[in-house]
Design a protein around this nucleic acid. Structure first.
Lengths: 234, 234
DNA sequence: GTGTACGAAATAATATACGATCTCATCACA
DNA sequence: TGTGATGAGATCGTATATTATTTCGTACAC
């Protein structure tokens, strides 16, 4: 009987799933990288069957693209994909935040404020990775009490997808981070004031959409100024 | 070269996926039904590998529950699951409807009205299956122009899940169907009047939540009146 | 020189086989 | 009568092997 959960070895397919997903999220496998069944299987010391299963699951989550008889590759990171992902996340995250609010404790709010202070602090020294982590910490507190597990799962998937898309490539627009911190504070004020749920939902939704809009405006400006397709990455 | 798409045989895993999903949705495999790999593989004339893959994908969609070394079964249909599914669907469907509206043609609206008339007609002779089909036809027109493919996919999954949950078991509450038809008409009026997108989103969202609320109220009343746990199924 | 046909190498898709794990009935013993 | 051990059967998990498909290099024809 497998009561002793600490000893239960993960299945090979789970192993492969975690292995590949982690590499996609931290960009060791970057968009377009080709996922060859045999190679990954060899690296992991398992057969191709569980690796294939893992890849098909990641395909269902949108992290990889799969073509029959050809193979899989890490999903491409084009602006349109970023836009669609951000829209979807704005929708589910907004709801999750509003639905979580009634269950938040004073301590939760205090933790979120502390994290937001750290975010404000981090504005002085440019560090996309740290900012992204703190940002997730902040939002995690906001939706961790979400009573709808399906929607919470969609929020998780959205964040995973953003990481896979190399969020920092897209979302670091000059000046946006500062606005973001201010919007966080506003959301916390609404929560503390037990604001109307719809108002809170739209504050959270628009917070994310504002980041998207900043990117789109920045992109348009960039394309307008210099028509040469040089892609300066941060 | 596989240019001739008409001749391209579906993969075995796709075959198994469609086979199982169809059976879940039309209740030949009802909630709790045990999905035995070998049995399904034998029935389909394929090996267990693609069947297993199909089942894991269906698990990711929430249509089946899977337990390691034990097996899979069609997801159970309890009221809580219905509630969560309806909430999620209300969210994504509301957005999809509002986002589709600007792209709807006069013909689209006319088609939707005609379908709603048929729905009104069908109220006279009780036929859950026909009602459900017409209802999907109606809503399909409303969100078919949704510009966000992720959200459209979530809407599809929500509907699939409702079918799997034997929607009719839950959602047929006396009098609700008639209200539903009236709400449909209201939504069409908003679309024709180019109403505020947020107003439209909430009209569509609340339309679904009203169905959920009717069920929950009906359920409470039922539990209150007769405490005996007899489950009278239609 | 350009395009097409062919074939070898790489890779995916799936069948088969076997070992691992769970379930459940049975039985021993308190 | 109840509780725990035991083993057979069922089923899952995955390695291995085979087949099918694609890709790409090379040679040949025009």
């Amino acid at each position: 009987m497998a009561l002793n959960a600490t000893l239960a070895a993960p299945s090979k397919s789970r192993l492969a799933y975690d292995f590949i997903k982690a590499r996609i999220e931290d960009s060791r496998y970057s968009p377009g990288y080709r996922l060859v069944l045999g190679a990954i299987a060899g690296e992991l010391g398992v057969s191709v069957v569980p690796v294939r299963e893992a890849i098909r699951l990641l395909e269902a989550e949108g992290l990889v693209q799969f073509e029959r008889n050809v193979g899989a590759q890490v999903a491409m990171a084009d602006p349109r994909e970023y836009e669609v992902t951000m829209q979807t996340l704005s929708l589910v995250e907004g709801w999750a935040t509003a639905a979580s609010a009634p269950f938040m404790t004073a301590d939760d709010v205090a933790r979120a404020r502390a994290t937001n202070d750290q975010l404000a602090e981090s504005l002085h020294h440019f560090d996309p990775v740290a900012f992204t982590r703190l940002n997730l910490d902040f939002h995690s507190v906001l939706f961790e009490h979400c009573p709808n597990p399906h929607i919470l799962d969609l929020v998780d998937r959205g964040w995973a997808r953003l990481r896979a898309l190399r969020e920092s490539t897209f979302s670091f627009v000059p000046g946006r981070a500062k606005e973001s911190v201010a919007e966080h504070a506003h959301i916390l004020d609404l929560i503390e004031g037990s604001a109307d749920p719809v108002e809170l939902e739209f504050a959270a939704r628009n917070h994310r959409l504002a980041t998207l809009d900043a990117f789109l405006a920045h992109e348009r400006a960039r394309l307008h100024h210099s028509d040469q397709p040089t892609q300066e990455s941060a």
